[in-house]
Simulated assay, not measured.
Amino acid sequence: MKLTHLTLRNYRNYAAVDIDFSPQINVLIGENAQGKTNLLEAVYVLALARSHRTSNDKDLIRFGAEFAKVTGTISRETGPATLELVIAKAGKRARINRIEQAKLSQYLGKFNVVLFAPEDLAIVKGSPANRRRFIDMEFGQMSPKYLYNLSQYRTMLRQRNAYLKQLKFHQAKDRVFLDVLSDQLAAFGAEIVVARTHLLAQMAGFAAVIHQDITKARETLTFEYQTQVPEAARDSVEAAYQALQALFASHKDREIDQGTTLVGPHRDDVAFIVNDKNVATFGSQGQQRTTALAVKLAEIDLMKAQTGEYPVLLLDDVLSELDDTRQTHLLKAIQNKVQTFLTTTSLDGIAREIIDAPAVFHVDAGVLTRDTVAPDTVE
């Protein structure tokens, strides 16, 4: 999978961009606050119809403009496709090959990206919510079924929480209706638990190999899926459904008392274990960085296994955060197989293994220009 052409209109600090990209490495060079990350964000938004930097879509619209538009030409094994996302103050519209999509869920998954930024260290040492967001965003790209079940689960969770509050404040009395909501929540939750179990196990296998390579077999990385569904019930949708039903039933009185759903996949977590210790709690900063890198590289392999194609990799000022060993492993892992977009303030210090003749773009105050000759600093 490649992004061959990108068009921006009124996106962040870009008034207009029309640019072709290399199928290999694309380096975006510029001083801070010139728009490097904005362009990387636009590629991410094209894929996922949302930003990783803000939850307010209005932030994506150039100051004084009524809308922003991101259009990309995608090359896939099934053939080329044109994706278009229009972001207006009233909402978003998505088109595939000029055909408007009734739902954003129909648009998602056509273009897959993996973003690696310095803040991704939060995947390892941040809150459970950070890790849930990570796995849901990535698994949702790979599986329309996962995305559907997650969307339905969140809708049912909002309805159930609203009804629990009504019961708490005696604005409702019918507990049978709560059982109906619980049953529906358990049905979608079971699908999510089983999917997470299988996908996390597959990702863990990829990550373990990468982690051993980086650490020269001195350390072993494993994943621990932490969910309230018993381990014996995680491989079967029916078993997970029954387990969740039992959990909701046993917590019913407490949930009414607190006015919220206390159990379910929205409380799940993933622990990263290095040499039998939780790296978030007991790992050094170096171990945490190595784990984050292994997880991100494993994500690339998992997407290839699930979709049949490698995703596009977005590296936002990551190389400056990695030592020579980790930088070399990252560059070797993507060499000649993953189209990559990389932001940096300078090519100085970037490892020579960055692949032959990258396409280099200079970013200056929202203006993008491409070098016609490869820089001398990269051989």
Rank of each mutant, 00 (worst) to 15 (best):
V114T: 14
L297F: 06
L28K: 14
A117D: 07
G91H: 13
S250V: 15
L48N: 12
Q327R: 11
L150S: 14
G140T: 08
G35W: 06
K2G: 09
M303A: 07
G35E: 11
D371A: 02
D317V: 06
E321W: 12
A374F: 11
H170V: 01
R352S: 12
D183F: 02
A359D: 09
L199E: 11
H329L: 05
L368C: 04
D268L: 07
Y241T: 12
S51A: 08
E255T: 06
T343I: 09
T7D: 15
R50P: 14
D323M: 11
T291F: 00
D213E: 13
D174G: 03
V295H: 03
L181K: 15
T222H: 02
D269M: 06
G286W: 12
D276S: 05
L262E: 09
L104W: 05
G366P: 08
V124D: 15
D317Y: 09
F248Y: 11
Q327A: 09
L313K: 06
F248W: 04
D316E: 15
L147Q: 13
P265A: 04
A102W: 02
T4D: 15
Y107V: 03
N161W: 05
D179P: 06
L164T: 04
A246C: 01
D301W: 11
G91T: 06
A233V: 03
L247S: 08
T4Q: 14
L121F: 04
E299K: 02
N336T: 07
G126F: 06
G109H: 08
I29T: 14
F169C: 07
